[in-house]
Design a binder for these strands. Structure first.
Length: 926
RNA sequence: GCCGCGGUGGUGGAAUCGGUAGACACGAAGGACUUAAAAUCCUUUGGCCCGAAACGGCUGUGUGGGUUCAAGUCCCACCCGCGGUACCA
């Protein structure tokens, strides 16, 4: 009976489909369990072997939960709005919807081949009007809400209006436009002039998490700072709750830490400094209130509102010049060029504690968006202030005992204060506290918590995204009625911006609502992915994003599996979006993803051939990897990426290589054994000469010819082997290269296991067989509960070896093994189960193995009558003894001490101490 | 710079509570089968040393210290690699 995996997999996939086996109902007596994968962006390249890693893990867990009797929601969908499809559309004129649909179809066919237990009826696509209707709906709710800082939650903005109507006499005197402008300062979704990351090449604004080191994450184009009127989401209002919520969810510490850093809470103080000759003071933010005695100058951000107030006539020209230079620097230039720069404003502030006059400067090392955009500079204890002071020759006053500030600043928050009036002698920590009390009491300032987290910029000047349900009247935005959603994305004559530089929607005909112009921007990528998990629960509902009862049944996601790359993007936005919907009472949980596991990346494993480029070398002669360090070749070979499909176990298929590209048609080789010609008496047969390729771990990419397509693996080995092997590669969370070299072993295991099901019998199992089985049940259960899938495969292999040695053919053993294997390799497990079903009648006649009951292990089968004790002398194992399991500690010691081998190792000495750890080990100390 | 994660054979990795380091798999070497090869099966496989043999010795989890009867595992210091992040006052 051959293991015909192609037939088995096709047969069972069809059988599941026919029986609707993965249909999930919202009405069930069973307990719910929600397992979610991060849905993919359907790119043109299709899935490579790295994508399914997390999907396989979540599929195993879903199937395990199902076998344990849970009603498991495990859906899949597509994050189908995004830049690549639109860039492609601009280049080719092809509508992004067409390419997107093609890509989705390809993804689905690839995913279906791997045998995931998705309920495809629950599929969502972010570009589907039935889906983005609810993205637009949520935006309207945000527009119509404000953040009530008293209640610490979002509230309908009508509440705020009612309050003003009742208590604020000026409200009624305002024109409608003025009222709208005032409300704009409170809405969760609001329009504002903000400094944005503008990417000229992409023609759009980008969010902070879409920019890395001054370049766009997508495409790597330069990004510059610009002030533009944009839609923003008031996510900063949620900073405290986003931070606090992390303590209640089961995510990895590193991911929580990344979010904590991104939210960036810092406790400090706001302080007012008087400006010499002016009545109005200005305010700075500091976390080092203890260092006020060492403030020797002040610095404003170039964009600070204070700049206009403090620049003197004498300095105006110099300041204008500086501001001009700063304005034209891109973010990237600013990061690359850390030279100290700045300009004196001509004004002085008064240090409120020393009453000295201190100069006010402008420099771009101070950021306008953080704190108040103005700082007090303490050069002795801040490295940036120090560099500035050295450059402009400003005084540096050390404030901490023993700090040497002649070469560099002393930034550490430790030591005893000096030169600091009433703070002298205090530890830094206490000094900060005391100064905070002082400024609060004297009215100089107040204690303040600042967050680094900024509001999310929500407009994109792009075509392929959700249209805003917004029109403009008298220059002010209004939402279109919810009853008219979805507002469909219009057809446009071209996907580029208009001739006069308006976003692509400006190319649409009649893009108006009741004669008023509609918003031309679209929403960013994270809009559609922020609440998609809710929609899976109830994706056919046209009355609500999700029905309240349905939401109450499923709750939130119990297990979310995906990559870390979303740590500061999707995973923050989604938490914010969810908390907002929770505030308004639409959903029942304030955190969307209870447990989150990050799967590692699968990297590529590239192969190389080495072209000989020494003097007089033949045109295309390649040197086997093991020879390239030989003196005659060293330094004279050029590594060339070779398509890994031409290589097996690092051995090159030389004929396939010659056929690969025209230039290699006449390639010659120096083989591993140093010979050059095929010296084989069996003409026309494969050569025993081997050309060994070099290898390296790199990113999986087309240009390195190291992309492995899961379809090819499924074709060659089957989906079950692919699934098992991806798990076998290593722990789920770590990144590792895809190395096909080991896949044969896993495939061999399945074949051997399958062979054991040829003639299943009804015979009674032996104690040994039961022990193997129950050991396996215990191990696999533990592994799945702990997401240690990689260690399960060896456990199966060991069980197979043990049972094969016992010639086990018993249903009582083999049927439960089919269940244990079902989460990992569902197709072959069904076939194995079927073989068992045909025999006898003791096991319940359940249709599919996926609906069986997860076996329980019983300790009684695991118990062995004897116990092996390794015997150590001074911690070194010398031999082992085997004694009765029930033997007492004292008796074990006696047996060991009476053993003749012990006498040998004691060599006449008396042991100082004998340690017996029951059930584990004996250690004799000499 | 800061934060996080990691470092175990030729390779991927295992060791779940401080208790026999290297499970399992790949690769390699040798053998069986074969005209040959592939496939399959069997044996060996961390390093070094002794030996006819071994249930022989030594050494060994990045480095150096420490705690312990016992350390890959705990503590201290350091080195290296990977990932994230930054003029955040």
């Amino acid at each position: 009976m051959d293991y015909n995996f192609q037939e088995i997999e096709k047969h069972w996939q069809e059988a599941w489909a026919k029986a609707n086996a993965y249909k999930v109902s919202n009405e069930s007596e069973k307990k719910p369990y929600y397992v979610l994968d991060m849905f993919p962006y359907p790119s043109g390249a299709g899935l490579h072997v790295g994508h399914p890693l997390g999907y396989i893990a979540s599929d195993i867990y879903s199937r395990y939960k199902r076998l344990q009797g849970f009603n498991v929601l495990h859906p899949m969908g597509f994050d189908s709005y995004g830049l690549p499809a639109e860039q492609y559309a601009i280049q080719t004129g092809q509508h992004p919807e067409i390419t997107t649909e093609e890509n989705i179809a390809r993804y689905i066919s690839q995913l279906k081949k791997i045998g995931f237990c998705y309920d495809w009826d629950r599929q969502v696509k972010t570009c589907d009007p039935d889906f983005y209707k609810w993205t637009q709906w949520a935006f309207i709710q945000m527009f119509n809400s404000y953040y009530d800082t008293q209640l610490d939650k979002a509230q309908p903005i009508s509440k705020l209006i009612a309050e003003w109507e009742a208590n604020d006499p000026t409200w009624k005197t305002l024109s409608e436009k003025e009222q709208q402008e005032r409300l704009m300062n409170y809405r969760i979704a609001y329009l504002a002039d903000t400094k944005v990351n503008w990417c000229p090449q992409l023609g759009t604004v980008l969010a902070n998490d879409e920019v890395s080191e001054g370049l766009s994450v997508r495409g790597g184009y330069p990004v510059e700072q610009r002030v533009m009127r944009q839609w923003c989401l008031r996510i900063s209002a949620y900073a405290g709750r986003l931070l606090e919520g992390l303590d209640r969810i089961d995510w990895t510490e590193s991911l929580k830490e990344t979010q904590r850093n991104w939210i960036g809470r810092s406790e400090g103080a706001e302080m007012r400094f008087a400006i010499k000759g002016q009545d109005e003071p200005f305010t700075i933010f500091t976390t080092r209130a203890d260092t006020v005695f060492g403030v020797t100058f002040m610095v404003l951000a170039p964009e600070s509102e204070y700049v206009a107030r403090v620049v003197t006539e004498d300095q105006r020209k110099a300041v204008d010049e500086y501001l001009d230079v700063v304005k034209h620097r891109t973010e990237r230039e600013r990061i690359a060029d850390r030279k100290v720069s700045g300009v004196f404003t001509g004004s002085y502030a008064i240090n409120p504690l020393t009453n000295t006059e201190i100069p006010i400067y402008i420099s771009d090392y101070v950021l306008s968006g953080y704190g108040t955009g103005a700082i007090m500079a303490v050069p002795a204890h801040d490295s940036r202030d120090y560099a500035f002071a050295k450059h402009f020759n400003l005084p540096i006053i050390p404030l901490i005992e023993g700090a040497d500030v002649s070469e560099q600043s002393f930034d550490a928050k430790e030591g005893k204060m000096i030169n600091s009036g009433f703070l002298n002698g205090l530890e830094v920590k206490d000094a900060i506290k005391k100064m905070k009390e002082y400024i609060t009491e004297t009215g100089l300032g107040r204690v303040k918590v600042n967050y680094r987290l900024r509001d999310a910029i929500f407009s994109r000047q792009r075509y392929w995204g959700e249209p805003f349900p917004i029109y403009y009247k008298d220059g002010m935005p209004y939402t279109i009625p919810e009853s008219e959603l979805p507002l469909r994305l219009p057809e446009v004559s071209q996907f580029k911006p208009t001739e006069d530089g308006r976003p692509p929607l400006g190319n649409a005909k009649d893009w108006t609502y009741q004669g008023y112009p509609l918003e031309l921007c679209t929403m960013p990528g994270f809009a559609g992915s922020s609440a998609y998990y809710l929609r899976y629960m109830d994706n056919h509902n046209d009355k609500a994003l999700v029905d309240k009862q349905v939401n109450a049944y499923w709750g939130n996601v119990n297990l979310y599996i995906g990559g870390t790359e979303h740590a500061t993007g999707h995973l923050i936005y989604s938490r914010f979006w969810n908390k907002f919907l929770y505030d308004l009472g639409y959903i029942c949980k304030d955190e969307p993803f209870q447990k989150l596991i990050n799967q590692g990346m699968i990297q590529g494993r590239s192969n190389f051939v080495y072209r000989y480029i020494g003097e007089g070398a033949p045109a295309n002669q390649f040197i086997s990897f093991n020879l390239i360090d030989n003196p005659e070749y060293k330094g004279k070979v050029q590594p060339i990426h070779v398509n890994i499909n031409l290589v097996h176990n690092d051995i090159l298929d030389v004929d396939a290589f010659r056929a690969w590209m025209p230039e290699y048609r006449n390639a010659t080789f120096i083989y591993a054994d140093g010979t050059t010609d095929v010296d084989n008496p069996y003409i026309g047969m494969a050569s025993p000469k081997q050309y060994i390729c070099g290898w390296a771990v790199e990113k999986m990419s087309k240009s390195m010819f190291n992309v492995v397509n899961p379809d090819d693996v499924v074709e060659k080995y089957g989906a079950d082997t692919l699934r098992l092997y991806e798990m076998f590669l290593g722990p789920l969370e770590v990144s590792k290269p895809w190395d096909t070299n080991g896949i044969d072993g896993v495939h061999r295991f399945l074949r051997k296991l399958w062979g054991m099901y040829e003639n299943v019998t009804d015979a009674e199992p032996t104690a040994e067989e039961l022990r193997s089985l129950h050991k396996l049940i215990k191990k696999i259960t533990w592994d799945i509960e702990n997401f240690s899938f990689n260690t399960s495969i060896p456990a199966f292999m060991i069980a197979q070896t043990e049972l094969a040695a016992l010639h086990c053919d018993k249903k009582a053993i083999l049927a439960p093994i089919a269940i244990l294997l079902a989460p990992y390799a569902p197709h072959i497990a069904e076939a194995m189960w079927e073989r068992c079903k045909e025999i006898g009648n003791r096991i319940e006649e359940i249709g599919f193995v996926i609906d069986a009951e997860w076996p329980r292990w019983e300790e009684k089968y695991l118990e062995e009558s004897t116990q092996k004790y390794p015997v150590q002398f001074n911690g070194k194992v010398r031999f082992t003894i085997e004694v009765s399991k029930t033997m007492s500690k004292e008796d074990v010691e006696k047996v060991v001490m009476n053993d003749e081998q012990t006498a040998k190792f004691l060599n006449g000495q008396a042991p100082k101490k004998v340690i017996v750890v029951p059930g584990r080990i004996v250690n004799i100390v000499l």
